[in-house]
Write a protein that binds this DNA or RNA. Structure first.
Lengths: 210, 210
DNA sequence: GTCTATATTAAGATAGAC
DNA sequence: GTCTATCTTAATATAGAC
C-alpha cells in the first residue's frame, strides 16, 4: 500500500498512481490474470515507465499486499475487554462492514489472493492473523465464561463476521443486481440486518433479550 | 459442467477429464489467470489434444459455468412453504453448507467469476438468480407477516447465508490455517455455530426462544 | 524520467503426419 | 484421436536515445 522510495514529488505521485491502478486491476483479475499493459494504461503511464518505478509485476503486487494485512486486521485489533461484550462485537461488525464499504478493492485483492492459494500471505495468515484471532477468541471465551455473552464458537463467530461483511465488497455486483440498487445503498440495510442477527445470537439470556 | 458431444466412451472420458482439470485450474486462478498448459497437464493430455475436444479456452470455461448456476441455486429452490419457517431456513442453510463441503471448486469458480465482474453470468444473475431470490423473499415476507418468523430483511438474510456458507469453500485455506484443522473438520463446527446464529435471529418471539 | 524499439518467453490456437 | 511442429499474439522485461 506504500510507494517505495518516493523521494521527489513526481516519484510519489507516479508511484501512487501505479499502486492505485494496480489495485484496480489486481483486485479484479488476481495476480496472474492482471497485465502490466492494463495497469500502465489505467495509471496513464507507458509500460517501461511503470517498470522504472517498480522492478517487476510481482513487486507491485507485493507492495500492495505489504500494508494490507495490518489495515485489514485493525477492526479486530480494536476489539477490547472494556464495555459490553455484545456491543463490542457489534462495534467490530460495523467497523468491518465500513471497511468493505470504503475499501472494496482491498477486500477483493485479499479474496483473490486467498482463492489463488495465498502464495504471498500464507505466512501472515499462519502468523499475525492466527495469533490475533487466537487472542480475541480467548477474550470472547472469557466473556462467555462470565455469562456476558451467549456460548458460541469464537472462531466461527469471527469467520461469519468476515464472511458477511466482505460479501458486500467481494460480491457487490451480485448484491446490486439482485437488489436493483446502486452505490452504498445496500450497506445501510446490511448493517441493520447484521446487527439484529448478531445481537440475537450473542445476547446471553434469551429471556431478557429484546 | 456437462461434456459436449460425448458420443463415444473415450470422448466422454476425456471430456470429463478436461472439465475436471479445468475446474481445478479455473477455480483457483480465474479465467484469465488459468492457462491451457496447466489444464492439459492436469488432464493428462497434450494441449492440441485438449483443443480437439473443446474449440477454445473460453469454450471450456463456458461449459463449466453452463450447469453451475442451476446446481448452485438448487438448495434455495428447495425452500418451501410447508413446514416450520425457521426449520425451513435452517434446512436451506445446511444444504448450502453441504454444497461448500462437497463442491468447493464450484464455489471458488463462481467467486472468481463474480470478482472478475461476472462477464459470463451477469445475465443469469439479473435473470434466473434474481427471480428466484425475489420469489423466496416474498415467501419469507409472508412468514414474517404471519408472525412465524422474526422480522428480518429477506434479501440480506439470503446474502448472509450465501456469505457464511461459501466462506468455508472460498476461504478454506484461511479457515484451516487459523483453526489448525484439516479436511472437513471445520464444517461440523460451522453447522453448529450457524444453526445457533440463525435460530436465534429468526425465531419470532424472543420470550419463547431457547 | 520518459520514450521508442526490441529481446524473450509464454500462451492460445492451428497444420498436418500418423 | 493423438502427436510434433509451428504460427501468432500477448506479456514481461530490458536497451538505449532523449
Amino acid at each position: 500500500m506504500s510507494a517505495p522510495r518516493a523521494r521527489t514529488r513526481i516519484q510519489a505521485k507516479n508511484s501512487q498512481a501505479i499502486l492505485d491502478a494496480a489495485l484496480d486491476i489486481f483486485s479484479q483479475y488476481g495476480f496472474r490474470g492482471a497485465t502490466l499493459d492494463q495497469i500502465a494504461e489505467r495509471a496513464g503511464l507507458s509500460k517501461p515507465n511503470l517498470l522504472y518505478y517498480f522492478p517487476s509485476k510481482e513487486a507491485i503486487y507485493v507492495a500492495l499486499l505489504a500494508g494490507l494485512m495490518d489495515t485489514w486486521l485493525a477492526p479486530l485489533r480494536a476489539l477490547h475487554h472494556d464495555g459490553d461484550p455484545v456491543e463490542e462485537i457489534l462495534g467490530y461488525l460495523r467497523r468491518k462492514l465500513e471497511m468493505s464499504r470504503l475499501y472494496p478493492r482491498e477486500s477483493r485483492l485479499f479474496a483473490n489472493e486467498i482463492l489463488q492459494g495465498a502464495p504471498q500471505i500464507l505466512d501472515q495468515i499462519e502468523g499475525d492473523l492466527k495469533a490475533l484471532v487466537d487472542d480475541k477468541a480467548a477474550l470472547i471465551r472469557l466473556w462467555i465464561a462470565e455469562g456476558r455473552l451467549a456460548p458460541v464458537d469464537p472462531y466461527h463467530l469471527v469467520f461469519s463476521i468476515w464472511a458477511t461483511t466482505q460479501h458486500y465488497a467481494d460480491f457487490d455486483i451480485q448484491v446490486h443486481r439482485v437488489l436493483g440498487q446502486e452505490g452504498d445503498a445496500p450497506f445501510a440495510e446490511a448493517e441493520r440486518f447484521l446487527t439484529h442477527l448478531y445481537r440475537s445470537a450473542l445476547t446471553p439470556n434469551p429471556l431478557t433479550a429484546r
